[in-house]
Design a binder for these strands. Structure first.
Lengths: 346, 346
DNA sequence: ATCTATCTCTAAATCCATTTAGTGCCAGCC
DNA sequence: GGCTGGCACTAAATGGATTTAGAGATAGAT
């Protein structure tokens, strides 16, 4: 092995020496500020390239009182995380923005204990690890709003907060897609359309439920067949069994996510129902498997990568004190596959 | 609104002033070094608590020439990421170790272009963002080994590298689980057992294929029915159609991951086969949906969270110059569900 | 020729915590 | 009493980059 001890990262001092100028000149030249002759600037650039020097983030951070890093907290039970395409796509979008600006993404996985969750935020803020954070998986009356305000840490919320959000937020328009799904079922002749909701307490659970309710009522139907779910496969199956147990049975079920929907299809099959002839099913998310199960799942797709980009852009602007960009979010889109069909005749 | 300008993070100077001592004393006291009277130490702790002071990572990093952060690079096409429970679980495990030591996890999503991938590593290393990195999704003749050696950045590889890996690695024992799956099929009377491989170039694709080959040969069977896959649903379906198109058809298929397996089951169903009577299917990963599709998928589970913990522990030790802990990895376990059954009579 | 303005660059201060060298002080010892 | 040792603490150096005040040189103006 060996080489570990030998090398030392070059400093701005080394570059200055090689270029025959002072440290200050190097800084000015490489940051594009005015005040160095073109020839000198070229010489400095060359020296920096030769040494493959890059300014230490920590020195810059110390000087600038900035971290050049943004934080993303994930607080979900592992199973939900594993089955949801949201985070990978979202993070990919966030990174595409951060990378181009030399910012890093600090990921923090916290358990759902509010005690330790608050402590995590506090630690990152007090240590100065991040300049701001992205808030996902918004909860109803989200306690994080208060914590972050208290900590004076800039944040951008992803979603439509239930109430009094002190931070800018990204209106991820998933209502229209969800309503379109219900409309689609109604057009197919369904009247008893049930909804299996997501885990309670989350804003997006409430939003999806509301979209179902609103669209039902808009067509003069009572949104009565509701069962609370939890976004897990087991929860989806259980909710489905409950809906199918007592009459009047629904002829269609709209689930708050695909995992519950696919598990629900299995539960319905187990109960002897033929899909989609006797029961239509709609999911939410469009996970990679949605198109590959049988029947292929009709669902609503959200462009999480796009959200990630927009959220990152907003947070960067917020941290830099620039005006927030007008976020243009790709709305959720309805995807018809084969798990939905005409309502069975009475 | 408003308070942003008002507050300033307290510094060690503030704590020192409040406690009536010098900065040095505060540092010594709060880092648990000997050299301050107990009474003074208590006074200092109290002052720090009052101001809710935490040492700035950047100042510490600058002084110590350490970042107190580790890096994780993800370079996968989004679809593969979204359908794989590996990363969420792995990251959760990593975090559980890092959190307790005050280390942060810097996530970097890079596209698969080797040019930009190398540049990403270079940037993080030169800027001093991280003290070391975790290498996942090992590739055959992984180019990252050379880059990181060149950059002098400590690393730990997760998996069993194909060759000349200059870094410590974690032997994630998935062979036994995979062989057990094949053995299970053979015990059920299957002889024509096919394998749909993962994306070529990855070490784990090769490992799983090898496990299938070895176990087949150990029972005097020719491992001939192989089709290369790509870990995607579409790829799994395509490979399955190919296997079922020409005789002699396999009576069982072992897939390199669950996504391909579930898509394969759909393809088989589409082709008119009854599962598991006419075709047995085994997956790999145990995604949350595996138990909830029909037939429920027989598969092999790996404890990615456990890997994450072990990998993080090893990397932390490596970075700290401590002896590497003996990694005791939970081996992959075979999970029998209903997608496998007795071989059909000839 | 002298003064001013401009340009190019340097020196030093700054960000904050840690560490090292060193200062006082008291106790214990011969 | 004077010397040594140890304890409790302080002052200053350090890490690496940015920024500010200012120096020196040159060109242009009067």
């Amino acid at each position: 092995m060996g080489s570990t001890a030998g090398r030392r990262r070059p400093t701005i001092e080394d570059v200055a020496r090689l270029a025959g100028v002072s440290k200050g000149a190097v800084s000015i030249a490489l940051n594009g500020h005015a005040g160095v002759a073109d020839a000198t600037r070229a010489r400095i650039s060359e020296a920096a390239r030769t040494l493959s020097w890059r300014a230490s983030v920590h020195a810059r951070a110390l000087r600038a009182s900035r971290s050049f890093a943004l934080g993303l907290f994930i607080s979900r039970p592992p199973e939900l995380l594993a089955a949801d395409p949201f985070f990978p796509a979202f993070i990919a979008g966030v990174e595409s923005i951060l990378a181009s600006r030399g910012l890093a993404l600090v990921l923090q996985v916290v358990d759902e204990n509010p005690e330790t969750e608050a402590a995590s935020y506090r630690r990152l803020a007090h240590e100065g690890r991040v300049d701001g954070v992205l808030l996902t998986d918004l909860r109803i009356d989200d306690p994080r709003f208060a914590w972050l305000t208290e900590l004076d840490l800039p944040a951008v919320a992803v979603g439509r907060p239930s109430s009094g959000c002190p931070f800018p937020w990204l209106d991820t328009d998933d209502r229209e897609g969800a309503r379109q799904a219900v409309r689609h079922l109604i057009a197919l002749g369904h009247r008893r359309i049930a909804h299996v909701g997501g885990a309670p307490g989350y804003v997006h659970s409430a939003t999806r439920r509301r979209a179902w309710e609103d669209e039902m009522q808009a067509h003069g139907l009572e949104p009565r067949l509701f069962v609370e779910g939890d976004f897990t496969g087991e929860g989806g199956a259980r909710a489905t069994r409950r809906l199918l147990a007592h009459g009047p049975r629904p002829t269609a079920i709209v689930y708050a996510n695909d995992l519950m929907a696919i598990s629900g299809m299995s539960a319905a099959t187990d109960a002897g129902l033929a899909l989609p002839d006797q029961l239509s099913v709609v999911g939410f998310d469009d996970i990679p498997l949605a198109a590959h199960v049988r029947p292929a799942l009709t669902t609503v797709r959200q462009d999480a990568t796009d959200w990630g980009r927009s959220a990152a852009r907003s947070l960067v602007a917020l941290v830099d004190g620039e005006p927030l960009p007008a976020a243009t979010i790709t709305p959720a889109s309805f995807i018809e596959r084969s798990s939905t069909g005409s309502a069975p005749g009475e």
